[in-house]
Design a protein around this nucleic acid. Structure first.
Lengths: 107, 107
DNA sequence: CTAACACATACCCCAATGGCTATACGATAA
DNA sequence: TTATCGTATAGCCATTGGGGTATGTGTTAG
C-alpha cells in the first residue's frame, strides 16, 4: 500500500526536486527552461523531476505552444499537514492519559 | 548545506523508518525488542533505523540495564511544519499580489 | 518546407541505501 | 566466572534512483 503521505515524503525527500517545488511556490508559474536555468542540473533531469512532482500532485502543467508552464499545487501538501497533526495528536493524547493517571493517583 | 527540513524529509521518506516513528508516537516508549517484534524486518535493521531517527532528532534513547528504550521527540517535527507554512505563505502572498494588481486595475 | 527550438523520453551509469547474516559488546543471571 | 540475553556494529549484496548524453516529438520561425 502506498499512502498519500508516503508519496509526499518520498517525492519531497530529494533536494533538487524540493528546490524546484519551492521555486514554484515562491515565484509562481515557470517554464521548464526558466527552471533549468537555475536548477544546477540538465534539462532532462528537470523534466524528470517535474514529472515525479506532477505524479505526486504537487505541480500542474499547462501547455502553451512549444512551452510548458509548471505551477505549484499547494493543496497537495494537505496529507503532510494531516500526518503531522495526527502524530502530534497521538503524543498529546498519551500526555492526557498520563495527566489523568497522575490526577487519579493524587486522590 | 543540509537544512533541518532536508534531514527530516530524507529520514521520514523510508516507510519502515516512518512506521517505527509512528509507533513510538502512538504507543509511547518501546524497547528495540518490542519494536522488532512487529517491524517486519530484522533486529539489526531496526537498530540502524532507530540510529538514523535519533540522528535526525526524531527519537530519544534511554538505557536501562541491557534494554534500550526509545521514544518519539515530537518537537523535532517543527522544521517540517515551518517549511510547510512557509510554502503556504509564499503561495498566499503571490495571491495577495494578484489581488492588489486586480484592485489597481479596477480603478 | 525546413531549420531551430522547447520539452519529453530512452538508455546507461554509478553512488546511496535498505535488507540480510555474523559477530562484537555490555549487562545480568546462574 | 561463565552463559545468556538485548542491542549495536561490521560486512556484504541487490535494488533504487538521481545524474548524464543522445534522441524523439511537436511547434514556431524563416
Amino acid at each position: 500500500m502506498s499512502t498519500a503521505h508516503d508519496v509526499l515524503f518520498r517525492t519531497l525527500a530529494d533536494p533538487t526536486r524540493r528546490a524546484l517545488f519551492e521555486r514554484l511556490c515562491r515565484e509562481g508559474e515557470k517554464t521548464v527552461g526558466a527552471l533549468t536555468a537555475r536548477a544546477g542540473v540538465s534539462q532532462p533531469v528537470v523534466s524528470k523531476h517535474l514529472g515525479i512532482l506532477k505524479q505526486a500532485g504537487l505541480v500542474r502543467d499547462r501547455h502553451e505552444g512549444r512551452h510548458t508552464h509548471y505551477s505549484a499545487q499547494l493543496g497537495a501538501l494537505t496529507p503532510l499537514v494531516d500526518w503531522t497533526s495526527q502524530m502530534a495528536g497521538f503524543w498529546q493524547s498519551r500526555f492526557d492519559d498520563l495527566e489523568d493517571l497522575l490526577r487519579r493517583m493524587d486522590q
